[in-house]
């Protein structure tokens, strides 16, 4: 499983602050941050700890198994963010 960031995200990186394994991108000092339209969770590194979901002020984060139907596509959207940053993740799951 993994956690997934969805449409309401406002990029306030509360989730980044609490994530114990630094698997949420871009971080505020990364080059892509200022132009980011949302943040993304690396499904390979996420350990399902739930901390980000609890910290998110706009309820944008869901455990994959609790994703509302209309946002199922965000599983792929989160994963793809890391696929296009191949230096960080070699392999991204597509288990939708």
């Amino acid at each position: 499983m993994s956690y997934v960031i969805t449409a309401p995200c406002v990029a306030d990186y509360s989730c980044v602050e609490v994530c114990p394994v630094d698997c949420i991108s871009p971080m505020p000092d990364d080059s892509g941050f200022d132009a980011a339209t949302q943040l993304y969770i690396n499904p390979v590194l996420c350990v399902d700890c739930d901390a980000c979901r609890e910290a998110c002020p706009v309820n944008a984060i869901f455990a994959e198994d609790q994703l509302p139907e209309k946002w199922l596509d965000y599983i792929g959207i989160n994963a793809a963010h890391f696929q296009s940053h191949t230096q960080t993740v070699a392999e991204v799951r597509h288990d939708k």
């Binding site: 609490v18 994530c19 114990p20 394994v21 350990v47 399902d48 700890c49 739930d50 901390a51």
Partner: peptide
């Protein structure tokens, strides 16, 4: 099985 939480990891 690969789970841990933010308390333990911190």
């Amino acid at each position: 099985k690969g789970f841990a939480c933010s308390k333990g990891l911190a």
